[in-house]
């Protein structure tokens, strides 16, 4: 029975709403310090100014290090194309901060929408199953399936 499937799946990801998607985390890292390593091994230490859904980022007050790790540059600000990034290291505390923010947003959304939500609840419950396989929709919060709380 497909309903059973849905329930099992929901519990497996239920406590991790999609809004903690990697790119949402990046969004939440704005003004936070981070280390970005590019595919070519160069690293950039700076504060995130802005980012987009391509993972393009702008940093300020940057220390650039070459791939060998033996030369260093100070850069006031820089733009990095997302496709050249290998990984980003962000503050450990960021995940908790995002979670709290999400809970607040969810509570606010629930009380604002009131009874309307419970009606949409069933529909919302179905959507994430598909979405989870190929997660679409990006980091927009308060979207599908958020109706069922946790």
């Amino acid at each position: 029975m497909s309903e059973g499937h849905g329930a099992a799946r929901e519990s497996s990801l239920g406590e991790w709403p999609r809004s903690t998607l990697p790119l949402s985390l990046l969004n939440a890292a704005q003004n936070k310090p981070m280390l970005v390593e590019l595919k070519n091994g160069e690293t950039f230490n700076g504060h995130l100014v802005n980012c987009d859904n391509f993972m393009n980022i702008t940093l300020r007050e940057v220390y650039q290090t070459n791939a060998e790790g033996d030369r260093f540059w100070k850069v006031k600000e820089c733009y990095i194309r997302g496709s050249t990034i290998k990984y980003l290291r962000v503050p450990d505390t960021l995940l908790d901060a995002v979670k709290e923010e999400q809970n607040r947003a969810r509570e606010a959304g629930r009380s604002a929408r009131g009874a309307h939500v419970s009606g949409a609840g069933n529909r919302g419950r179905g959507m994430p199953q598909r979405g989870r396989g190929a997660v679409r929709g990006g980091p927009m919060r308060g979207g599908r399936g958020r109706g069922r709380g946790m």
């Binding site: 540059w73 100070k74 850069v75 600000e77 050249t84």
Partner: peptide, 18 residues
């Protein structure tokens, strides 16, 4: 084809800051 863009102003090689 652009991967990185930064102003030249304020760009300087420095000793290991770490």
């Amino acid at each position: 084809t652009i991967t990185l863009l930064s102003p030249v102003d304020g760009f300087e090689e420095i000793a290991n800051p770490f």
